[in-house]
Design a protein around this nucleic acid. Structure first.
Length: 576
RNA sequence: UGGGAAUUAGCCAAGCGGUAAGGCAACGGACUUUGACUCCGUCACCCCCAGGUUCGAAUCCUGGAUUCCCAGCCA
């Protein structure tokens, strides 16, 4: 697709190259395994790009597999959203599966485990299991049910499936080692009872496998060769390998872990993102301030920009937080030649050109993108009264200010030079309009070179101006100077995405909500050129000197045009 | 000495025993009908620290420091 550079070297690609060279694998198969319990965010995009592009580069395959082993948290709404986002990003999966497709196989393998004496039914309560698991430094204690006979385990497990027991009454545990220094190996629970309706399997099951058991088996049966996941699963790898081995799977997939993406000025946690939605802080999962794929799309990001970003940040094992400005770089780059450039006034100040003939209008032909002549030109009206940007005038200019101020002359982009004669004020001393004079000799395109001006400002003809709403965004989080604190925040979301789980800290949710930037949205009402009245959802423009904007797909309507600012233009000038 | 992992510039990151890629950001300058873009230049005598091996070490060895992850019937 287009002129996208291949990813640079990374440790996973090196592993694939070695595996192919050594003959350990003939072709590679990867997979992207989202849990349908929320919408995808830019962090998922990193994993998606990694899996799909890696397989693509080596002529392999990539499956999409929903990790739907926990019916109480999941929903088809999310399945649909995820499918849509992946397609929008531009990827096509080879096979679409659900972990629930393998529930029967998972069950059969559990029976095998029991027969081999590698799994047992435990009657202990969740609380007792936790208490006997030991601590980080002390080994756990064997369950009193650990040495039940194979027959009894088989009988009990079948009755679990048959629905004879209530939620939490029994679990199936892998029999590994209660004194392992790796807590994941201390007889992990692999099946639990949940009398819950499942979005894919309905009421067929009342026992559901745990991720650590289901995932490796799903990988194996699909022939996945390189199972990529994030760093916190490093400790789970021995269990992954145990499951593949003890269940006697034909294929032996291998798990590799990489660092998930973190971005400055935002959060990357489905749980926290959901809390923003639920608290009404944002408009929904697709609010442009959200780092979700849906939010970025509504903000005006393109799939190309997101893919290029994911490629350039690389893949490694060290914990990192990427500067959000890096992401912004890629959307500016992508839209530079694609987006037409037009003038719009976000915060209007009327200007009367006193020596311009009343009742006259002339139409300037202006290129749609000076760097991309293929985009053609358009006609833009100009007359005696125009709007300029309020910030393009200062009665008492700061040093190095070369826009409009009393006595100063500037260029009106694609029109004439104008000189400010007077700032007209109301009774309260507020500037309500400017009186300027223009110089007919300086008409754009005339080749006038008699004198130079330092500044060029944009404008919109007042008589033809079309009202529009502009939404400007700032980071959703207040404080971010302290990257290490941000790291902490992000890190602790990784594992605690369950609402009911209280192992984390309730207090830290509060501190997270305290960090929310209450001024992350600014709404302005201004004007656009008359040529933009037919604009459609997701049309993208560079509004001169302001940045790139996207036509909002939700709130725009006939007679109401809403622009979301995707990203500002860079600027080396700030009015203090 | 519970186990697992990480450490190369402000931020990502390549590097795999032959003398520190690239991108972002920043800072100078040129150009400019966007204070944008583009272009030019600057930005690690050094790779967490200390020893050692070697003709040669970011890469190998030894010891240490710091940071992150793990005690859900979540994924």
């Amino acid at each position: 697709m287009e002129t996208e550079k291949p990813t640079s070297s990374n440790f996973i690609k090196n592993i694939v190259i070695d595996d192919l060279k050594s003959g350990r694998e003939k072709t590679i198969v990867t997979r992207f395994p989202p849990e349908p319990n929320g919408y995808l965010h830019i962090g998922h995009a990193k994993a998606i790009c990694l899996n799909f592009e890696l397989a693509d580069e080596f002529n392999g395959k990539t499956n999409l597999r929903f990790d739907d082993t926990n019916p109480v948290k999941e929903d088809t709404e999310y399945v649909d959203g995820i499918l849509n986002d992946i397609k929008w990003l531009g990827f096509e999966w080879d096979n679409l599966h659900f972990a629930s497709d393998y529930f029967e196989m998972n069950y059969e393998k559990a029976l095998l485990l029991i027969e081999k004496g590698k799994a047992y039914v435990d009657d202990q309560s969740a609380d007792d299991i936790r208490k006997t698991r030991g601590t980080l430094k002390e080994p756990g204690k064997d369950s009193p049910y650990r040495n039940r006979s194979v027959e009894e385990n088989l009988d009990l497990f079948k009755r679990m499936r048959a629905g004879e027991f209530k939620d939490g009454e029994k679990v199936l545990r892998a029999k590994i080692d209660m004194s392992s220094p790796n807590i994941n190996l201390r007889d992990p629970v692999i099946y639990r009872i949940k009398h819950a309706h499942h979005h894919q399997t309905g009421d067929k099951w009342c026992i559901y496998p745990m991720y650590d058991y289901s995932h490796p088996l799903g990988d194996a049966v699909e022939g996945v060769t390189h199972s990529l996941c994030s760093l916190e699963y490093e400790d789970h790898r021995p269990l992954y390998d145990w499951a593949v081995r003890e269940c006697e799977m034909e294929n032996t997939p291998h798990q590799y872990e990489f660092a998930r993406l973190n971005l400055t000025n935002t959060v990357m946690s489905k749980r926290k993102l959901k809390s923003l939605v639920d608290a009404g802080v944002v408009d929904g999962w697709d609010d442009p301030r959200m780092p979700t794929i849906a939010g970025l799309r509504r903000k005006g990001y393109t799939p190309e920009a997101i893919r290029n970003f994911c490629r350039e940040i690389g893949v490694a094992k060290s914990y990192s937080i990427v500067d959000e400005r890096y992401l912004e770089h890629f959307i500016r780059e992508d839209l530079k030649l694609k987006a037409p450039r037009t003038m719009a006034i976000l915060d209007p100040l009327k200007v009367v050109i006193t020596n311009y003939p009343e009742g006259e209008t002339e139409w300037f032909e202006i290129e749609n993108n000076a760097e991309n002549p293929d985009m053609g030109t358009r006609k833009v009206p100009f007359s005696r009264e125009i709007y300029i940007e309020r910030e393009d005038f200062m009665e008492n200019p700061v040093p190095k200010y070369f826009r409009l101020f009393p006595g100063n002359e500037v260029r009106l982009k694609s029109a004439y030079f104008v000189k400010c004669v007077e700032a007209v004020k109301d009774a309260d001393g507020n500037i309500v309009e400017l009186h300027c004079t223009y110089d007919p000799e300086t008409r754009s395109g005339s080749g006038f070179s008699g004198r130079k001006v330092k500044g060029t400002i944009h404008w919109v003809d007042a008589a033809h101006a079309v009202p529009a709403e502009f939404r400007l965004y700032e980071p959703i989080l207040k404080d971010d100077a302290d990257l290490s604190q941000e790291a902490e925040e992000a890190a602790d979301d990784i594992t605690s995405e369950s609402e009911e789980y209280t192992g984390g800290a309730a207090g830290e949710d509060k501190s997270f909500l305290d960090k929310i930037n209450k001024d992350s949205l600014t709404v302005l009402n201004g004007f656009i050129e008359p040529g933009l009245t037919d604009v459609k959802a997701h049309d993208k423009f560079q509004l001169f000197r302001h940045g790139y904007f996207n036509v909002d797909p939700k709130d725009s309507a006939p007679g109401r045009i809403v622009f979301n600012r995707t990203v500002s233009l860079k600027s080396s000038f700030e009015v203090k």
